[in-house]
Each structure stands twice: as C-alpha cells, then as structure tokens.
C-alpha cells in the first residue's frame, strides 16, 4: 500500500525506482500514450538488464533495445504496423542475442497478471498448447482439468517489479485518470510491486474525482508532472502522434546501430539534460501546437499522417 499524502517527485527521482534487472511493464500501446519521457530518463540513468513484459508495443520497446537497456523481451508484439514496419533496434537486439526472446501472447499475459492480482499461483487457459510458445515458456505447465477432463495450460502469476505509466491526470495523492483506451495499464498497476507514473497535469482531487479515478492512489508509488511526456506517441485528446518525428527516428535506426546512436540517441536523449531540453530539440512550441491542433479540422488531422 502506498498511502503517503503527497506522491510528487522529480522525473529523476521517479525513474530511480527502477533497478537494474527489474521486470518492467510499460503502459500504453503501439503509438498511444507510451511513457516516453520516463524511458528517455531511464536511458540517461543507464538502467540496464531489464526484462520487458507487455502486449502490443512499438517505439518504447524499440528505443530501450536501441539504447542497450534490455536483457529479455516478453512482449507479444513490437513493431510499427503498416506505418514503418518492423522495429529495427528490437530486431537487431533479438537477432544478435543481446536481447533474449521470450515472446508472450496477450491473453496469456492478461491471465498471468490476473493471477497476481487475485493472489493465485496461476490461471488456466485453453490456448497456447499446440504452438511453440510452450518452448519459450517452460514455466507454463499443462494439467487435466479435474471437472471436465480437458487438458489446460496453466500460466503462473506475474508480478512485474515496476509498472511505468503515462496518464492524463493525477492528484497529489496519486489517483490517476486515463482518457481513452487504458490498454493493459490497469492490470499492470494492480499486479506490479511498484507503480510510477508521469502525467500531463496534476490537478486538485475534486477535479480528478469528477473525471473519474482509473487507478486508485494506493497502488501508485510516485508521480511526476511531465507535459507532453508521451511524445512522440499520442496522448489524445491533448495531442496527436508525431509521425514526422517517428519517421526521423526510423531513418536513424534503419542505417544501423551506430547511426541510431549518433542521429537519435545522442541528440534526443543523451544531449537533452531534461524533458524541456528534449521538447526544444523536437521543435518546441511550434511543433507541439501542431500536434495539439489535430481536432481543428479533418484536414489538419490527416496532414499529420502525410
């Protein structure tokens, strides 16, 4: 239980809750609401050997792989869909063996988190048997159901060390409000040992209560206000996905690990002493205003994807 009245801290202090070798659950999904500012800070703090668990992810996991922060990936998808295709840093890291591949599947993960949330040692599922995931996960067991006689797969409880989430709002106490799809964030928050969150804005509790509490405060270890903290992923309705920046990221990754280091990690992570410096580097207020104006007209919205 995390019950302190005031959970606010700096981004540096927030990220310091993650230790080398931790099992980390990153919130959001694909190009939506990834805790990118916190991940860049994690790289600056040189936190290593992480085991990542999650459902469908993209630039968040790829960035950490490109920075050499990851030892094991148990994600169920890492890529850029039809937008750019394969996640190149992730691919390189898996193919060289730098990252151990322990791919999982969405429902297996959901059931593992639920077992943790319910204090049970495992949850059963029908699927997975007949696939090669059983080889990647020797910890999954099969048993004959004592009621129906069916053969079921048992997936053990999964308690990530840390869930890292980017939400729209928090109050000082740590109650979180997420607009739009929570993806697996609520499950992550309830199953993990610690929950750390960046938020677009800190607001008084009365205001937050009116919007609705997505994740109750006592799950939450620490919070930090980081406006545009999901950039370049989206945090609708505040701002859309920055496809242009993601395209330059992808170009840097495409030309190999050295190019990615030189053309992305150095200018946008290591040379930015903090998040404000990053926001300037990606185009400052003018660029952010562009992303915020997605809802002014259909044309403006569509232009962001051209």
């Amino acid at each position: 239980m995390y019950t302190q009245n005031d959970k606010r801290c700096s981004l540096t202090e927030l990220v310091a809750h993650i230790q080398n070798g931790d099992c980390l659950a990153i919130g959001g999904g694909l190009s939506w609401r990834e805790p990118m500012a916190a991940l860049r800070e994690l790289i600056r703090q040189n936190i290593k050997d992480l085991k990542l668990v999650g459902s469908a992810h993209g630039i968040d996991v790829d960035l950490l792989c490109g920075a050499g922060s990851v030892a094991v990936s148990a994600e169920s998808y890492v890529g850029f869909e039809q937008d750019f295709g394969m996640a190149l840093n992730y691919r390189r890291a898996c193919e060289t063996g730098a990252v151990k591949v322990e791919d999982n599947c969405c429902y297996s993960l959901v059931q593992q988190l639920r077992a943790a949330i319910q204090g049970l040692p495992f949850m059963p599922i029908r699927s997975v048997q007949g696939t090669d995931f059983l080889k990647l996960h020797p910890e999954f067991k099969t048993m004959t159901c004592p009621f129906t006689g069916e053969q079921l797969v048992l997936v053990p409880a999964l308690k990530p060390d840390v869930a890292l989430i980017h939400a729209h709002y928090a109050d000082e106490h740590g109650n979180l409000h997420i607009e739009g799809p929570p993806v697996a964030d609520v499950l992550f928050a309830k199953a993990s040992k610690k929950v750390i969150a960046t938020v677009e804005a800190l607001i008084p509790h009365d205001e937050l209560a009116k919007k609705g509490v997505t994740i109750p405060y006592f799950y939450v270890t620490a919070i930090c206000e980081v406006p545009y903290g999901a950039h370049p992923t989206s945090c609708y309705p505040n701002y859309a996905y920055d496809r242009e920046h993601t395209a330059s990221y992808y170009q840097a990754a495409k030309h190999g690990a050295d190019s990615f280091n030189q053309n992305y990690l150095t200018p946008f992570v290591h040379d930015c002493k903090d998040h404000d410096a990053y926001l300037l580097a990606v185009g400052g207020k003018a660029r952010l205003a562009c992303l915020e104006q997605w809802d002014q007209s259909m044309e403006k919205w569509m232009q962001l994807y051209e």
Binding site: A56, S76, M86, E95, V101, I125, R126, S127
Partner: peptide, 21 residues
C-alpha cells in the same frame, strides 16, 4: 531456429490465443 534467429518478426499479439478460441 532455437539457437539462431535469422529474422525476428514483430510477434503475434493475441493471435496465438485467438486462433484457438
């Protein structure tokens, strides 16, 4: 193969589960 991955693909999301269910 298990020893040497020649191409890491993005992964199946929930496809493994849903192909059975």
């Amino acid at each position: 193969n298990d020893e040497r991955i020649s191409l890491k693909l993005p992964g199946g999301g929930g496809g493994c589960n849903l192909s059975a269910d």
